[in-house]
């Protein structure tokens, strides 16, 4: 608190204020994924079995991405990808499908695809995207491991420059 504020008799700021919850923390991301899993399960009766299974595989992949934060902090692009899929893309896809009348789900639309086909394709696209994120994350881990290996080799082995 500044001396001017003390002279004016301003109140002390509350330094014990709880920090803002970090929505991008691994715990928050995992909680969002768990919520999405519950959303998918609760609507399993209205989804084609293959879409249900593929959607759950997608949530598994999202969990793997978040679990990689135990090794190293998540890349900002990985966080954006997980946030987008969990908070928007997959729920929007499922909501759009479930909003249709059951009789209309198998009828081809103007583009030649039925809503069920479109649902399968959209989940597959999301899976492809999240899988690419997971691969990139794992490659970063592998690169970090290789860098650590080179460091240890240099530190504890004789250098090639030694005579």
């Amino acid at each position: 608190m500044s001396w001017l504020a003390r002279l004016r008799g301003d109140d002390e700021p509350d330094e014990q204020q709880a920090p803002e919850p970090d929505e991008d923390s691994p715990a928050a991301l995992q909680a969002a994924i768990d919520e999405l899993v519950r959303y998918v399960n609760a609507r399993a009766g209205g989804l084609p079995p293959a879409a249900l299974v593929n959607a759950r595989m997608l949530t598994d992949t999202l969990t793997e991405v978040v679990d990689s934060a135990a090794v190293r902090p998540l890349d900002v692009y990985a966080v954006i990808s997980v946030r987008g899929v969990v908070g928007d893309y997959l729920p929007t896809t499922l909501r759009g499908y479930l909003a249709l009348e059951p009789d209309a789900r198998g009828v081809p639309r103007a583009d030649g695809h039925s809503p069920t086909q479109s649902l399968m394709m959209q989940i597959d696209s999301l899976q492809t995207s999240v899988s690419a994120t997971l691969v990139a994350t794992r490659e970063q881990d592998a690169d970090a491991l290789m860098t650590q290996g080179r460091f240890l080799q240099t530190k504890f082995n004789r250098s090639d420059l030694d005579l």
């Binding site: 084609p48 593929n54 899976q127």
Partner: peptide, 11 residues
């Protein structure tokens, strides 16, 4: 293929 909209496993 699920990528083409078939109701199969996508993995």
């Amino acid at each position: 293929s699920a990528a083409r909209g078939d109701e199969v496993l996508g993995y």
